[in-house]
């Protein structure tokens, strides 16, 4: 059951001129969040911006083992993300959640391969923690435009996550898209049980889902559609889901997702 929390900003960490990590005192939501779930966020009480915006929960914060907040990973693209970027300690952010269908964590001997594009890194900190606690081996395939846009590498490395990086300008890791190292790994993983998790731009999600299918591995992708309410009220955030070989029907990604099996989505619609 989601709750609405007037969450105080604990700190705002700028990662670059575009990305920031906002820590919010919303322990009720943080403690109930499963990896891949999201919150609907609103800054200010006024009519601009009017609607809440969806954000994946990035980290669940703990002090001495007690959950005391959560963070959001944000890239400055619109009004709300600009406000998140500019927020200062003590500001208040309305935070409604946790919402949506989470990722399904796998157990050993299966390996977990997480594929992130840009700000699509967001759900993978909590997913990695849950997977590692189950003893599952975790690899993060992480792509961005340039090395300066790859964040939290030490955070993942320190916890025992293997990293496979790609940048479009070749400044770090593979030169090109993150799907290239992913395909190499899939091609070399004969006989291993692998679950592929993805979050990022939709063309990347489609490519990852197709690659996973090509190598006969299951995948789960987290989609981001324009969302009005997050609770199933408005029918704006729909995604085409396959009905047999040709047909499709629209499912609200706030309720049926945001995580879907990669082979459920009718990518050609």
């Amino acid at each position: 059951m989601p709750v609405d929390v007037e969450a105080r900003v604990i700190r705002n960490t700028r990662l670059s001129s575009e990305y920031n990590v906002l820590a919010l005192a919303a322990p009720e939501i943080a403690a109930a969040t499963a990896p891949g779930q999201f919150v609907m966020v609103k800054l200010g009480r006024g009519s601009t911006p009017l609607l809440r915006r969806p954000f994946s929960v990035f980290e669940v914060l703990r002090t001495n083992g007690r959950v005391d907040g959560l963070t959001l990973l944000s890239k400055r693209v619109g009004v709300t993300t600009q406000m998140l970027f500019d927020a200062v300690e003590g500001d208040v952010v309305s935070c409604l959640g946790p919402l949506g269908r989470p990722y399904t964590p796998v157990d050993p001997p299966a390996d977990a391969w997480m594929v992130a594009g840009g700000v699509g890194l967001a759900p993978f900190a909590t997913l990695a923690e849950v997977l590692l606690a189950r003893g599952t081996g975790v690899t993060l395939f992480y792509g961005a435009r340039t090395a300066r846009d790859l964040f939290y590498l030490d955070w993942f490395r320190d916890r025992g996550v293997r990293l496979s990086l790609a940048t479009e300008d070749g400044s770090l890791g593979d030169h090109g898209r993150v799907t290239a190292p992913l395909e190499r790994a899939l091609a070399g993983a004969a006989g291993r049980t692998v679950m592929v998790y993805a979050c990022g731009p939709e063309p990347m999600l489609e490519a990852v889902a197709r690659l996973a299918a090509k190598y006969q591995r299951p995948s789960e992708v987290s989609v981001e559609r324009v969302m009005g309410c997050g609770l199933g009220g408005c029918y704006s955030c729909v995604i085409p889901i396959r009905d047999g070989p040709k047909g499709h029907h629209y499912v609200r990604s706030c309720l049926g997702g945001p995580v879907f099996a990669g082979d459920q989505i009718a990518w050609d619609r």
């Binding site: 009519s47 601009t48 911006p49 009017l50 559609r225 324009v226 704006s236």
Partner: peptide, 9 residues
């Protein structure tokens, strides 16, 4: 989609 878009107020 796109089925909604925010406008002033």
């Amino acid at each position: 989609p796109e089925r909604i878009v925010e406008t002033p107020a």
